[in-house]
Design a binder for these strands. Structure first.
Length: 403
RNA sequence: GGAGGAGUACCCAAGUGGUUCAAGGGGACGGUUUGCUAAACCGUUAGUGGGAGCAAUCCCAGCGAGAGUUCGAAUCUCUCCUCCUCCGCCA
């Protein structure tokens, strides 16, 4: 959520910024109108209430009339407030000034590369062929059990999945200084609103009974750990890592990546989340990205870091680096991690603040997160990059300690 | 799921319709004293959100959340949430 004061004082700046990310500026066309209506009502109500307070002090009898008038105006104010809130919750974050302009994902900027693509003396196979042939990936039965875009990992694949999770968690906790948490996987509506999944992206989410939602990413429950809290500056930066399954409906991606582990309704991910002071968040984003990269380096996978252009940024993000890993069967890089600085966008929605010292006014923290990494895609990348002509694949040395 | 109980500010806590437009204590912060620390004493302390104003400042909201009754609600009524105790069920 953006600062409402910014919307009042400088709407043009925001409209300009939103154009960059192809968001519709029309979404808050009525903002000014409704906002001034709201302020007018607020003033009127406050004055009436002041009069009522005076009247009740002297036990005068004209309070009834005032009460009815107040009730009427409050009703109107509530309506305006709801509309205003809906507008505010649907406006995306403003891209940071360092973010490159662009029209689409084509305009993302490569920042750096690590390693080299593997050379094959044969035509490399896609991971799902390798896995099905080895009997360790079973898409057919998973479809029977659940539906399309599900998989059953069997034997070595299941074991590798677990080893990867452990490698990631151990690296982030022991080497990168994150605190491991295992959060709820079902969350309430307020949490989904806090990080920005709702109200706008309901169609991407699984909604359960009792008004609970399945996590699309651990970002939601981990960031909301500190919702409506005032943190001490001594605790910053707070760094958490969490392994959770993630659930996405993938509405609107029919026909995309239909085969294999790349795009599943359920997948495992290790997530990194940080809470920082505003002036440190961009430096922390660089570090967080390096933390995620470290896993790919340990596994010996070829990857590149890409800075997303304004048009490709996620709803809540001010700046994002994607890590993309090489997939030999496709001859291209695919996203395996996304590391973002949300600045105070999520903190404002979720009311996460900190105090610089005992007397200071609370300020919003900055929140960041990144995948460290998407586990299924990592497994797929290992199978493809380290495959041998006989249809088997090598297991990176570093995983042995975790198998 | 059933039956009870509770939720007041950073913490503990008084308060069942109008000098409580939220006592008291602890803590925290500031000060006096002191070579330093502690103690003692004095003072400050609901944070927050919102509105008006160039500003000093003024006003409004707020006792778990929301609605209601009333001239007036922490206090009465209803709904919901959370926690605790007992019973039942359960990995």
């Amino acid at each position: 959520m953006l600062d409402i004061k910014l919307l009042r004082s400088n709407p043009e700046k925001i409209k300009e910024a939103l154009k960059q990310r192809k968001a519709d500026a029309a979404s808050f066309g009525k903002f000014a109108e409704i906002d001034s209506e709201w302020r007018k009502l607020t003033l009127e109500i406050d004055e009436l209430r002041a009069r009522r307070n005076k009247a009740s002090e002297s036990q005068a009898k004209d309070g009834k009339e005032l009460r009815e008038k107040i009730k009427e105006l409050e009703e109107k104010k509530r309506t305006a407030e709801e509309q205003l809130n809906l507008i505010l919750l649907q406006i995306p974050n403003i891209p940071d000034s360092s973010v490159p302009a662009g029209k689409s994902a084509e305009d993302n900027v490569e920042i750096r590369r690590s390693g080299k693509p593997p050379c094959f003396t044969f035509t490399p196979k896609p991971h799902f062929e390798i896995g099905e042939k080895l009997g360790i990936l079973d898409f057919e039965r998973a479809t029977k059990v659940s539906g399309s875009r599900f998989v059953i990992l069997k034997g070595l694949a299941a074991k590798l999945e677990r080893a990867l999770i452990n490698l990631m968690l151990d690296t982030h906790t022991k080497e990168n200084g994150y605190t491991e948490v295992f959060p709820p996987i079902l969350v309430n509506t307020k949490s989904m609103q806090g990080t920005g999944q709702l109200p706008k992206f309901e169609e991407d989410l699984y909604h359960c009974s009792d008004d609970l939602w399945l996590l699309p990413t651990a970002e939601v429950s981990v960031t909301n750990i500190h919702r409506e809290e005032i943190l001490s500056i001594n605790d910053l930066p707070l760094k958490y890592c969490a392994y959770t399954p993630c659930f996405r409906r993938e509405a609107g991606s029919y026909g995309k990546d239909v085969r294999g582990l790349i795009r599943q309704h359920q997948f495992n991910k290790v997530e990194l989340v940080k809470f920082t002071e505003p002036e440190k968040s961009f430096a922390e984003l660089e570090k967080l990205t390096l933390d995620a990269e470290k896993i790919l380096q340990k596994l010996g996978l070829h990857y590149r870091v890409v800075e997303l252009c304004a048009a490709d940024l996620g709803f809540a993000s001010a700046k994002t680096y994607d890590l993309e890993v090489w997939f030999p069967s496709q001859g291209r890089f695919r996203e395996i991690s996304s590391c973002s600085n949300f600045e105070d966008f999520q903190a404002r929605r979720a009311l996460i603040k900190f105090r610089r010292d005992a007397k200071a006014k609370p300020e919003f923290v900055h929140t960041l997160n990144g995948s460290g990494l998407a586990v299924g895609r990592t497994l797929a990348a290992i199978m493809e990059n380290f495959q041998k002509e006989d249809g088997t694949f090598e297991i990176p040395e570093v995983l042995n300690a975790h198998l």
